[in-house]
Design a protein around this nucleic acid. Sequence first.
DNA 1: CTTTTTAGTTAAGCGGGCTTAACTTTATGC
DNA 2: GCATAAAGTTAAGCCCGCTTAACTAAAAAG
Lengths: 147, 147
Amino acid sequence: MSKQINQSLREWMDIFMHRSMRGWSQFAKSTGLSMPQFSILMQLHHKGPCGMSQISERFEISNAAASQLAEKLVQSEYIERAEDPNDRRAKVLQLTKKGEDLINAGVVERYRWLDELVKKLSTDEKSKVHEGLSILTEMAKKLESRE
Amino acid sequence: MSKQINQSLREWMDIFMHRSMRGWSQFAKSTGLSMPQFSILMQLHHKGPCGMSQISERFEISNAAASQLAEKLVQSEYIERAEDPNDRRAKVLQLTKKGEDLINAGVVERYRWLDELVKKLSTDEKSKVHEGLSILTEMAKKLESRE
DNA sequence: CTTTTTAGTTAAGCGGGCTTAACTTTATGC
DNA sequence: GCATAAAGTTAAGCCCGCTTAACTAAAAAG
């Protein structure tokens, strides 16, 4: 059984990742942002506001690099860089509305394929898919919260 | 129902994509390859051997860029660039064993998280997940083959 | 209160990806 | 067969991300 499920997981990832990876980088390009810049936006969207050092840690780049990337995103008004009230050395980076909108547009575009896919499923299939994914998501969240 | 399933799909993608995107780019970096170079390997792995023009089409870059990237991958022995026997202008790019091994190592590393996740599931949950994913994968393949 | 550590910025310089443009070689259309 | 189109390659030049190194400013440690 474990083999079967691993098999099906991998097959799915293979297909899915291919679509989404290429999709995201093309979307990023179409907005004029580089992948590193875009990834920072994604990250802020996913994990919420954070400081400069968190960026450099998560992306494994130097502090200087993070600072420079952030600067460009501030210039293009996708993020806001404010002073941390609790520590005046630190900054708080967060998405502006423009930034949020951009990511959401990307999500919509990216999932169009999935919507098409779902449309083709029967009601019964849909509910099975839903059930399976809910289980995965639940567990993923549980694990993530523990890290 | 359609709303529910879309919801669960998106939640899952959100989590999953975050992990895998960051994961892949870090893995690529650890191998010394740039993302564009690495993406080409992924692509060859996923879609099999192809010509130079297919690369430039799929990645939406110029022919020159594709050629230069391929050159580097040939140098580092991740791919092989042979003359197409049917058209001597064209080339056939394909992964070498070294290239295959690299991608597979990446896959293993990337899915370690998933394996952990699956381990935590009960037998019943596993079979439900398996069922759901199989349905998705089937349909995805059907759609893909039609493009 | 001084020393040290931490957060971030700035600038110089390297390497990489990408584009355009000029070119070679092979296939196709007429 | 000759002109044209197609597949790749090569080189020049640009922009970008990244690193190191030197610096500022604020917090923590003593």
